[in-house]
Amino acid sequence: MLKIEHLTKTYADKKAVDDLSLHILPGEIYGFIGHNGAGKTTTLRSVVGILQFDSGEIFIDGKSVKADPLACKRETAYIPDNPDLYDYMTGIKYLNFIADIFGVSAADRQVRIREYAGRFDLTDDLAQPIAAYSHGMKQKLAIIAAWLHQPKLIIMDEPFVGLDPKAAHLLKGMMRELCDEGGAIFFSTHVLEVAEKLCDKVAIIKDGRLIRSGTMEEVKGDDSLEEVFLELEDEAC
């Protein structure tokens, strides 16, 4: 579903991502772990086509992000670490805007908005301007918008930040649901317990370089993910 090959991105004279390669298959929830500034967000933003990278290739469902960005974006949804949405729109206008861009039919969008907004207890607030939303409400709206066009691949940067426990639980369920239906999820997180329980595979990045990746069992063995992560961080130092 997502193949990253030798991705390299440099800011000024600093390599934010250095020769990173990953392969995410349909049905997989793939966790992406690393300290602050390790290159997680740069990688995610490169995958969704926001950042232009220096070298390497990214393929989504076999299509190159460089050669055919629109086709890749049609299959993808992205939730950034800080959901800066259009404050001047109401929640429902925002969802309709996203649905228009992805060409979701009136009937489908109505059913999905009803379902997802209902799940996240956001229905009553959809007529409110986004400017009046709390951080958590914006995050919920961004999640609904991401699921609205039924993407094959969802990229999320710290998706659980700001969510209440119920919404976080719901999101985990939705992630599993999407992957059970053949989709894939690639997300970054600092919450290692969540990654350990939720992810099928995990990748650990430090200073832009991939230091370990594989199934959860391969990466952590008999230890906890936290222990392995801290150990690897120390080794790399």
Binding site: R114, Q128, A132
Partner: peptide, 28 residues
């Protein structure tokens, strides 16, 4: 800056093409 809270009432959505949706976004 909240005024009286408006509760959402579901209505039939109107579909727009990409160009019209972007134009409506800019106008908004």
């Amino acid at each position: 800056g909240r005024t009286a809270r408006r509760v959402y009432r579901e209505r039939a959505a109107k579909c727009r093409g990409t160009g019209a949706a972007l134009l409506a976004r800019e106008m908004g």
